[in-house]
């Protein structure tokens, strides 16, 4: 009875199935967006002469949009291995923050290998649905999402390499906002409940927009700007509006 009451308060998508199945279900809409984005990534890979099987394997193992775009751009100029590593670190640095954030949401006694598994699953979208998971995060939830979404990401890359640009420009243009729609769906509901988050989100929109047009700062890569703005704005929010002491004892962060 009590469990039923808790279940009734959860968003609909968390009510049924094991965490693995829930993750796979929530991974599907993410995967559809991934497929579209990866398709355009595949077109770039095709121009570099990357075979479809290699595009599939590397996308499945890397799972990072900005990271893979970055990698292709340094491959195109035949950069050194040091530059390849540097690019991968900078374009993926936000995952370091996300991983750190999620280590606090996984149950205390979770074995290390399961924690590492959660870390490997980290992408922007999987992170987004994972922080939205009510209570502690079962490692099988991000895993389920990654099985579905990661395969679709890899399939999208391979499709882009094989099929090139057969999708009409209009379709690509429409699909390209799908990922951002998902981001919006993740950040808006908590903004309604916590004014601190709402203000932080609005400040992020404003400063991010400003940094995209300011001289010098706008010449920094998107990845670098994302990291800088995240650290500055989240630190400012933490100073101005720290979370309440009772929340510190709360495992749900």
């Amino acid at each position: 009875m009590f469990n039923q009451q808790i279940a009734n308060r959860l968003p609909h998508r968390f009510r049924r199935g094991t965490p693995l199945v829930q993750g796979m279900r929530d991974g599907l809409p993410i995967g559809i967006g991934y497929y579209a984005v990866a398709f355009s990534l595949g077109i770039i890979a095709r121009n570099l002469g990357i075979p479809a099987w290699l595009g599939f394997a590397s996308s499945l193992l890397t799972r990072a949009s900005a990271g893979e775009y970055g990698a292709y751009s340094v491959i195109a100029i035949q950069a050194t291995m040091v530059e390849v590593i540097g690019m991968a670190v900078v374009t993926n640095l936000r995952y370091l923050l996300m991983s750190t954030s999620l280590t606090q949401k996984v149950a205390r006694r979770t074995p290390l290998w399961k924690r590492l598994l959660v870390g490997c699953c980290m992408t922007d979208e999987v992170f987004g649905i994972s922080i939205a998971y009510p209570g502690q995060l079962p490692p099988s939830y991000p895993l389920g999402a990654t099985i579905v979404a990661g395969l679709m990401w890899a399939a999208g890359t391979a499709s882009g390499i094989v099929a090139g640009d057969i999708l009409p420009e209009q379709v690509v243009s429409a699909l390209s906002v799908a990922l951002y729609g998902m981001f919006i769906a993740i950040i808006v509901p908590p903004s309604r409940q916590d004014r601190g988050i709402a203000v932080a989100v609005m400040a992020s929109f404003a400063l991010s927009g400003l940094c995209a047009i300011l001289p010098i700062i706008s010449t920094l890569s998107n990845g670098t700007r994302t990291i800088l703005l995240t650290v500055i704005i989240a630190a400012a929010a933490a100073i101005i509006r720290p979370i309440q002491p009772q929340d510190i004892d709360n495992d749900n962060l």
Binding site: D124, F127, A200, S204, R225, I233
Partner: peptide, 13 residues
């Protein structure tokens, strides 16, 4: 860490 996810996603959007 509480604010990081929302700020990152907002900045990327």
């Amino acid at each position: 860490l509480y604010y990081v996810p929302y700020v990152t996603l907002a900045v990327m959007t």
